[in-house]
Measured scan of single mutants.
Amino acid sequence: MEVRTIKVFTTVDNINLHTQVVDMSMTYGQQFGPTYLDGADVTKIKPHNSHEGKTFYVLPNDDTLRVEAFEYYHTTDPSFLGRYMSALNHTKKWKYPQVNGLTSIKWADNNCYLATALLTLQQIELKFNPPALQDAYYRARAGEAANFCALILAYCNKTVGELGDVRETMSYLFQHANLDSCKRVLNVVCKTCGQQQTTLKGVEAVMYMGTLSYEQFKKGVQIPCTCGKQATKYLVQQESPFVMMSAPPAQYELKHGTFTCASEYTGNYQCGHYKHITSKETLYCIDGALLTKSSEYKGPITDVFYKENSYTTTIK
């Protein structure tokens, strides 16, 4: 009895394709271990004539594949690729409408935090270190965002349907971005203890939790000093293409032309909904596939993004 075979390709990165001759009487799992086709788990399936010449994702289970996976995804987590594939199996079914010149995501599976993050990423200057993220990001900007969303979920250790947080998501993504040249110098002034300067680099240099107003941050924000008295913390120097200011959701007025974009969060910790506000020729609110415009805006804002380049204080 002759062994019926077909020729397929296996890959971990969709760049390096490895030619395989597979036995049609055995499952993919018996031949390769966990195997995925377009995100779908085909591990328990036997090869079919229609699979001839198709590319299958496999887990990096030998040295060659491990090197290829690390170079593309910059992670050695053995569960990463499987999590990416199972997320992709959902995100490829989502709709990605162009809204006001940006790629958004039609609401499904509690994905409003991903839509808000995706919209924000198209408006701030950011370059990702893992080629996987950078490639998928370019495709997302062009309207094909399924891979990018699935990668975000995998890097953030999230599953489809789980509630997510924009600030946490951005923080994970910033860790995989090139923020080497970003720098922030802060000064804390206390009447009792004097003053202390701190220099922050990388992710810490672009994120701040405690106030939404970048102007206020430049002037000074009140913080408790270690001595128990009130101290003032203010920005001395900022070198970065953008800054992200966050605070627990509270009524906040966004003035046209003073910011790049913002995240609105309605609801409580267990259950809520994100919308995205962007400042173009007027203010726009993007909620999944829905767009509304207004000249002014007041609502429960939790993150505001500002364009920056270089700032030095005039406070002496």
Rank of each mutant, 00 (worst) to 15 (best):
S50G: 13
K93W: 07
K298Q: 14
E168F: 07
M245C: 12
E239T: 12
S50K: 13
Y36L: 04
Y28G: 08
V185R: 05
A289S: 10
A150P: 04
T226L: 10
F259A: 02
P97R: 07
G220Q: 02
R167H: 05
K229Q: 15
A115R: 05
S104Q: 09
N178V: 04
Q122P: 05
C182Y: 09
G39W: 06
V12C: 13
A150Q: 01
K293P: 09
H90P: 03
T64V: 14
P249M: 00
T19Y: 10
K307S: 12
A150E: 07
F242D: 03
A250W: 06
L81C: 10
T55Y: 09
Q195D: 14
R167N: 05
G101D: 04
K44V: 14
V42F: 14
W107I: 06
V22I: 10
K127Y: 08
Y234S: 08
A231K: 04
M244K: 00
R83L: 09
D287N: 03
Y28M: 04
G202Q: 01
D62F: 01
L153M: 14
Q237E: 11
M209S: 11
R141V: 12
Q134K: 10
L235M: 02
L153C: 08
I105G: 05
H276A: 03
I105W: 02
F9I: 11
S310K: 01
D62A: 08
L153W: 04
A289F: 02
N16M: 15
F305E: 00
P34E: 15
N100Q: 15
R167F: 08
Y214R: 04
F305K: 00
I6Y: 08
F56C: 09
I124E: 08
D23S: 12
D135P: 07
V22G: 09
C225G: 04
A87I: 06
E308K: 03
A150Y: 05
Q123N: 05
K219S: 10
V236A: 08
K127M: 10
D303S: 00
Y265T: 07
P224F: 10
T232I: 14
C112H: 08
L118Q: 00
H48G: 12
M209D: 04
L65W: 08
K316G: 15
K316R: 15
P60K: 07
N129F: 02
L212A: 08
S310H: 15
H48V: 12
L283Q: 01
K201V: 11
G161H: 04
D62K: 09
Y73N: 07
T266D: 07
T266S: 10
L121K: 04
S86M: 09
D38R: 11
K54M: 14
T312F: 12
V21A: 13
I45W: 14
D38C: 12
G143Q: 09
G194R: 05
H51P: 05
A115I: 01
P248L: 10
N14C: 10
